[in-house]
């Protein structure tokens, strides 16, 4: 909570320090130029240029906490509403990418570790190295060229079909538009997760307790099932929830490439269009998202690991 407060203060301070003139941003370039100096001064007064920074911050944050996040200039709608509609798209995109990259990355990492040195391992490693060295937006472009332009399997952009009224859009339409951006995000995320999981799995398989389990007659795969997966869960949780921020960062690029109307795209629009209220709200929202992810990870540690659970109990 303290962290979110700090984030909101920093965001607000940075926005205040930016060279955006509130009068110009609100009335527009041409109106601003044709305005008399007296009128400008009156408007500056109206938008609170003379109010001290901390007081403006206090006004903003108290309204923010009550749900009034201001009005988006670019979308001409309340910020809360813009974020709500956009977040639904982005969260769906992120969720799919997060689950796919997590499950696939974990499985590939474990298999590569168990078959260390074999062609399977080399294939997984090769895939991961190539993808880890590839920017997400470039993969997105390649997917667009291959699957949307050449093969025509998926649409080139947007989250719903063009020219269809909102009421007629079906879930299938939405999913159809979701596939390529989600795939792009997942494919990039897999590399990271698989390589980390592979390293961890190798450590675990060389640990004393796996050696002992093998000495007690378990095959490597049995030992993995009985003891390995359980011990891999902890690093996997850390990785998986830490990857939320990466996927969120990736979604900004991917949404741009696929013209996908999500938060990332809104953030870019807000940033380029001096839409201060929206930009600040998105910054706080994304910090909150990452914070919630880490919070869940911390809670899950205790569920999985008795050492952490009991350690916390004794401190309270």
């Amino acid at each position: 909570m303290l962290l979110l407060l700090a984030v909101s203060i920093i965001v607000f301070a940075l926005v205040s320090l930016s060279p955006i003139d509130p009068v110009q941003a609100n009335v527009g370039q041409s109106a601003y130029l044709n305005m008399s100096p007296e009128k400008r001064a009156a408007l500056a007064e109206y938008w609170g240029s003379n109010v001290p920074l901390w007081e403006r911050y206090f006004n903003w944050i108290s309204a923010f906490l009550q749900g009034d996040m201001g009005t988006s200039l670019r979308y001409n709608a309340p910020v809360a509403q813009v974020i709500a509609t956009r977040a639904a798209n982005t969260l769906l995109l992120m969720l799919v990418a997060w689950v796919v990259s997590g499950v696939l990355g974990f499985a590939l990492g474990v298999v590569a570790a168990m078959k260390r040195g074999s062609w399977v391992d080399k294939l997984v490693k090769g895939y991961c190295f190539v993808l880890a060295a590839t920017p997400a937006f470039w993969i997105g472009l390649v997917f667009l060229i291959v699957f949307a332009v050449w093969l025509g399997w998926f649409p080139v952009g947007f989250s719903v079909p063009i020219g269809k009224s909102a009421a007629d859009v079906t879930i299938v339409d939405a999913l159809h538009h979701l596939v390529l951006p989600a795939l792009t995000l997942s494919v990039v995320g897999v590399a990271n997760i698989a390589m980390h999981t592979r390293e961890k799995a190798i450590d675990v398989m060389e640990s004393d307790y796996i050696r002992f389990a093998r000495a007690r007659g378990l095959t490597p795969w049995q030992a993995l099932r009985a003891h390995g997966l359980r011990n891999l869960l902890l690093p996997a949780i850390t990785l998986q929830f830490a990857s939320i921020s990466e996927i969120f960062g990736g979604s900004v690029l991917v949404e741009q490439v696929f013209s996908y109307p999500g938060l990332g795209q809104a953030a870019v629009t807000a940033g380029l269009g001096s839409d201060v209220a929206l930009l600040a709200a998105i910054a706080v929202f994304s910090a909150a998202l990452v914070f919630v992810g880490n919070l869940i990870a911390n809670i899950l540690y205790g569920v999985v690991d008795p050492r952490i659970r009991k350690g916390e109990g004794s401190h309270v």
């Binding site: 640990s207 004393d208 307790y209 050696r211 002992f212 389990a213 093998r214 000495a215 007690r216 007659g217 378990l218 009985a226 003891h227 359980r230 011990n231 999985v304 690991d305 008795p306 050492r307």
Partner: peptide, 21 residues
């Protein structure tokens, strides 16, 4: 290995037990 009438290991330390079980 670890079968009846076979060979069993008594290891050195508690690190040979799964810490999460």
């Amino acid at each position: 290995r670890g079968r009846a009438g076979g060979i069993s290991l008594v290891p050195q330390s508690v690190s040979h037990l799964d810490p999460l079980m």
